[in-house]
Design a protein around this nucleic acid. Structure first.
Lengths: 201, 201
DNA sequence: CTATCCTGGTTTCGTCTCAAAACCATCTGC
DNA sequence: GCAGATGGTTTTGAGACGAAACCAGGATAG
């Protein structure tokens, strides 16, 4: 009897709760990007990398940071990035202060390509929501991500904007106390892997 | 000069609009599931299949439907499903009315495994939102998916619940006019690939 | 200064996913 | 019946991925 033990996930009378619905929808949106993206000859992983290096701040545009963000190994991340460098989407610059480290930046071609990112379709789609709806949806998703981060105890990337390491020094702008470097206003909106510890909304 | 043509995606002063933020968050939630899921020895694609066959109604538990849903080819879908059948998560039953077709159903083991689905972590996380917040978030995501479907003219799967093919026949319940079959109340909540044409919220 | 450990990154290798194309069986329309 | 469409499978080659070995360069202890 196949349909015997129905306690866990009762077939045919599945309780579709509202939290399940939200989760399903988020997954579908995510897949709409990640799956659909053999476009322009880039693989999903390569798109992810391109997006990441476009959005991350200067402390975070590194192999390790991307590997972390993309939940993969440094080895795999290295390959992905290598292919992007080879194809002229990224440039590699060795770090001055740490001889082991290197940072990667988008070339003009990389930035041009990013305009054809399948992800941009989602951005355009979101534009059809009212601003209030966008904010509410974003706040809900943020809540989910925060909970997820707590549960698996491996926190999500965040913006310096919301980071505990950030301190304002008067009219001169902001500084990251962790990196001991000043931050421009624009940089506050970029992804930072060192904001990892922050669980704030 | 690498940072010359900044018109498309201005580096360092990226406009992070609210629609971009929503899209990014949705992508992250999606990735949290799809990437993170080498758990329990199943690949992301296999998890997707398991989820799909657990959630789809009896007209949709088929290779083609899953391929459609998962935005992949029938060949690939066939392999994914084959592996799940081989490992005892799904059973294959040939269709009575169409000799070519077959439907796949979760075994008890499949259903048990689904409880360890990394996706469930997202469901649990969503549970921490208030019911109202869940609904608002869901409605926003639905809006995005609807827009996406319109844009790429390849509509998203839906629930019979909202489908134009559904007609109520008095106290006896509901019927799908397309399939010419009665539907139970529970089935209205399941995924249907034939609801594809419906763009209703 | 050197020994040791750590950390950022790369390479290699085997496994496995995936898309494309060829293929088979069955159904539908004429 | 025949032709074409449709549901599904198989095969093949490219390539993504994780694991592990590896190679710096940096940090720390003595």
């Amino acid at each position: 009897m196949i349909f015997g033990s129905d306690t866990i996930f009762p077939m045919g009378k599945t309780r579709v709760t509202s939290e399940r619905r939200v989760a399903e929808l988020a997954l579908q949106v995510g897949r709409a990007v990640y799956g659909e993206s053999s476009a322009a000859g880039l693989t999903p992983a390569q798109w992810m990398a391109l997006r990441f290096f476009a959005r991350a701040n200067r402390f975070s545009r590194t192999i390790s940071a991307f590997a972390d963000f993309h939940a993969t190994t440094r080895g795999t991340a290295s390959q992905t990035v290598k292919s992007l460098v080879a194809r002229g989407f990224l440039t590699r610059t060795r770090s001055a202060r740490d001889g082991r480290s290197a940072t990667f930046d988008l070339t003009a071609r990389g930035r041009r390509t990013l305009a054809a990112d399948p992800f941009e379709a989602v951005v355009r789609a979101a534009l059809h929501l009212s601003p209030a709806q966008r904010d509410r949806t974003a706040s809900g998703l943020r809540g989910i991500l925060r909970e997820l981060a707590v549960e698996r105890d491996r926190p999500a990337p965040a913006l310096c904007n919301l980071c505990g390491h950030l301190s304002a020094n008067g009219a001169q702008g902001f500084t990251c106390r962790l990196m001991r470097e000043p931050l421009s206003a624009a940089e506050l909106e970029q992804l930072c892997v060192h904001c990892l510890q922050c669980r704030a909304t």
